[in-house]
Design a protein around this nucleic acid. Structure first.
Length: 221
DNA sequence: GGCGGGATATTCT
DNA sequence: GAATATCCCGCCC
């Protein structure tokens, strides 16, 4: 099943353009314990200093190359896995040619294969929709850790496959967990699939649609 | 279901 | 020393 869009060609472009096309994409990880596949429902774009005239203050690479973020400056189609808050891993797909530093953070998704293994890795999840509901949860359910930083993501242990058709119900809004200028809607670079139950519940700027008071009687199962 | 706080390593000031 | 591209748990509606 060849996708209508060539992924390597797509990944040459800035993360802000790539991100919407990653919605619905399948990320497969063949670990020694077994395979787990996630269908991405939420991603965030980050641009490096050279990827835009308007630098992205929210990006890890905003102040240039460091030991931690060096993979982001490498070739596209690789994983940038970083460790934060002293306990969590999160995974990005590197975009743009070598020397630049764009990337898409995989924020949430639906586990479509390897449910048992994902449940084992995420024992605190109460429901399957929570298995990869959030960047650190997704990384944990997929088994991504320090050892996956810099590995190829287009074949081998990890493979990303674009959906046959681009997702239509694309929503966009401010990014999450970023204080200061980078988090405002000047940078509406978080993309998600509208209405999907696996999209993360972000606190900041919680734009909950006004909950309509339901008639007390009806309960459609 | 919605808050507040704690945990904890790496990075940069 | 402070901040962090977060999650979990306990407590309170």
């Amino acid at each position: 099943m060849a996708s209508s869009i060539d992924i390597l060609e797509l990944l040459q472009r800035p993360a802000t353009e790539v991100a919407p096309f990653l919605l619905g994409a399948l990320v497969r990880h063949e670990s020694p314990e077994g395979p787990v596949v996630v269908r991405l429902t939420e991603v965030e774009a980050y641009l490096g200093p050279k990827d835009s005239q308007d630098p992205d203050p929210g990006a890890h690479t905003y102040r240039g190359k460091t030991e931690r973020n060096s993979v982001m400056f490498g070739p596209p189609g690789h994983l940038y896995v970083y460790f934060s808050y002293g306990m969590h891993f999160s995974a990005n797909l590197v975009c743009r040619p070598e020397g630049t530093s764009s990337g898409c953070l995989m924020r949430a998704g639906e586990i479509v294969e390897g449910l048992d293994l994902a449940r084992l890795r995420r024992p605190t999840a109460k429901r399957d929709s929570e298995l990869a509901q959030g960047p650190a949860r997704l990384a944990k359910a997929m088994g991504f850790g320090r050892e996956h930083n810099g590995i190829a993501a287009l074949g081998g242990e990890v493979t990303v496959t674009l959906p046959d058709r681009p997702t239509t119900a694309v929503m966009a809004g401010p990014r999450v967990g970023i204080s200061g200028p980078g988090g405002t809607d000047e940078y509406p670079w978080r993309f998600w699939i509208g209405g999907d139950p696996t999209v993360s519940k972000f606190k900041p700027g919680v734009v909950r649609p006004p909950r309509r008071r339901a008639p007390a009687v009806q309960k459609t199962q």
